[in-house]
C-alpha cells in the first residue's frame, strides 16, 4: 500500500515536471536563450584568445579553469576520504602489522 502511494506521488511529480518542460524554451536551434553572446564569443574567439581549436578544451582549461582546479581538488578529496575510511584492517592483531 505504502509502496503504491509513493509510486503515485512520483508519477504525479513526473507529470508536473513534464508539464513544465513543455513550456520551457527547449527548441534545439541557435535561437535558444542559452545560445547567447557568451557562447558565440567562445566559438568565434576561442582560437584567437586561447590558441586551442577544441572549444570545449578552451572552456575547460582556460575560460573556466578554476572550476577544473576545483574538481581536481574533489578527486584529491576522494582519495583522502576513502583512505581515511579504509585505512588499516579492523582486527586488533592485524593493526600492528599494517601501521605505516
Amino acid at each position: 500500500m505504502k509502496k503504491i502511494l509513493i509510486r503515485i506521488v512520483f508519477i504525479i511529480l513526473f507529470f508536473i515536471l513534464a508539464g513544465g518542460i513543455f513550456t520551457m524554451p527547449t527548441s534545439p536551434d541557435i535561437s535558444a536563450p542559452s545560445y547567447n553572446d557568451t557562447v558565440r564569443h567562445y566559438i568565434d574567439n576561442a582560437v584567437e584568445e586561447t590558441g586551442a581549436t577544441n572549444v570545449v578544451a578552451a572552456v575547460v582549461a582556460d575560460y573556466r579553469a578554476f572550476d577544473t582546479l576545483g574538481e581536481t581538488v574533489v578527486l584529491f578529496t576522494a582519495i583522502v576520504a576513502v583512505g581515511s575510511v579504509l585505512r588499516v584492517p579492523l582486527k586488533k592483531d592485524e593493526v600492528e602489522i599494517h601501521h605505516e
Binding site: 586561447t50 590558441g51 578544451a57 582549461a61 582556460d62 579553469a65 578554476f66 581536481t72
Partner: peptide, 29 residues
Amino acid sequence: LTNLAAGFPAGSAGAILSAGMIPIIMIGI
C-alpha cells in the same frame, strides 16, 4: 590562471605545441 596574456606562447593554432598553458593543464589533469 591567465593564459596567453600572461606570456604563455600561443604557437600556431592546430599544432600540438600551442595554446599556452592548456596542454600543461591537460597533462596535470
